[in-house]
Computed example of a mutant assay.
Amino acid sequence: MTLGKVAITGGHGFLGWHTACRLRALHATDPVRLGRDDFADLDVLATRLADVDAIIHIAGVNRAENDALVEGGNIELAQTLASALATIGKPMDVVFANSVQADLDNAYGRGKAGAAAIVGGAVRAVGGHFADLLLPNLFGEHGRPGYNSFVATFVHEVVAGRTPTVSGDREIPLLHAQDAAEVLISSLGTDVRKVVDAEPVRVGEVLSLLQEFHRLYAERGEIPDISTSMRRNLFNTYRAAAFPDMWPVSPQVHGDNRGDLYETVRAHGGTGMAFMSTTLPGQKRGEHYHLHKVERFFVVKGEAEIELRRLLHDNVVTFRLSGDKPSFVDMPALWVHNIRNVGDTELVTMFWSDQLLDHANPDQFPEAIAQEAIA
């Protein structure tokens, strides 16, 4: 799929960030990411949109002090975007990240339905295509607890060692943010209104899985069963919330007259690949990121520095590891990472990932840690 220049409203929020990451990884494009400041001034918004070919409209109001602000906030954002489209006056393809609640009579649903009508009318008036996608409950890495989804709230509580309360356990359709981003991107240039499919999962089951992950991963160092997409996506969501506070981890060392023995990776009911490498002083490996792969770096011998940067962010997290105290760090999905030999001797590192290397689809995208500041 060939894309022109794409803008994302709400581009710095949860789904906006996931969508921008996917555009970079799979379409080699960095979108124009629009935030609150851009919508505060119609002229500024029109200027930033003037040379784009398509817009993914994600910006919205999920929660506010009262229902009127929720409903009115979504309408106001739509009106501002519609005015900008009219000002620009050229055909523009727009995909709207709507909600399944748009068919319900509540403040959020009315606001999203009204926004769809306003933006859709403005797009058709300038001769563009409009896709209205009704998204279910979304979850994924770096969601805000108490705001984006109950999954984000559960993850936050479980990582902190607390047990959230499940009230009214029921089945809820869940969709990972990367899957939502894929649907948004693939719908560019189409005229459609549809409900996006999701996997029904009970609220209590989500909590049980997160508690299972915490027990196996944080308390015992085991990689849990991630044999299904839902398990893997929930596990990556959990790992994002646990990072970087739980790292590095130093396993127990068992020594005798033969030397030292320590367990690096134990896959709990899963499959994976472990491997070793040697790195000469001053040399570096990595400089890439993954969309889904679960990966662990274990320093066995030598002195290493591991750097990680969340994709589309500037701040770098750095860990110093030494073979004198064997330790490991797991690479979160959607974080650029590398490992460098900072010692005077050979560095010996063991690596593990949850999937065998597929040369046709390696889930590995080159990117340097060092970069210019992101606007």
Rank of each mutant, 00 (worst) to 15 (best):
R320H: 14
G72P: 02
M276Q: 06
D225L: 06
G221T: 01
T318E: 11
Q79M: 09
L34P: 08
Y147V: 15
L312R: 00
V294W: 07
D53W: 02
A125G: 05
G11M: 11
H359P: 15
T165W: 04
L207M: 08
K5I: 11
A28R: 15
A152R: 06
E199P: 07
A117I: 07
V94T: 03
A68D: 10
F298E: 05
R231G: 12
L135T: 05
P200G: 04
A375P: 09
T87A: 14
A117V: 11
H359D: 14
G259L: 08
V316F: 06
L356W: 10
S229Y: 05
T264C: 10
V123Q: 04
E71N: 00
V70H: 00
M350E: 15
N137V: 13
R48Y: 08
A122M: 12
D105M: 04
R24T: 09
A160L: 09
P91L: 06
R202S: 13
L210T: 08
V151Q: 05
E346D: 14
L134F: 11
M230G: 00
R266F: 13
E346K: 06
V52Q: 04
N148M: 08
R170A: 14
R202W: 10
L26N: 09
V44R: 15
T165P: 02
F365P: 07
L321H: 01
D245Y: 04
E76C: 00
P145N: 09
L104R: 07
G302I: 01
V44W: 05
L138T: 05
H254V: 13
H359S: 15
E171H: 05
L234E: 03
E157S: 12
I118D: 08
F297G: 02
R296M: 15
A304F: 00
A82L: 06
K284P: 02
A152K: 06
F298R: 00
N341A: 02
H129S: 13
V95H: 04
V249S: 07
L356K: 10
L184C: 03
I172S: 00
G13I: 11
G270S: 15
Q283D: 13
R239H: 08
R239I: 09
A181P: 07
G204P: 02
D197I: 02
N98R: 01
I185Q: 01
P332W: 10
G143D: 13
N257G: 09
N361I: 03
E182Y: 09
R320Y: 11
H27E: 12
M246P: 03
I118H: 07
V32N: 10
E141Q: 15
F351W: 14
H142R: 14
Y289C: 02
A375F: 06
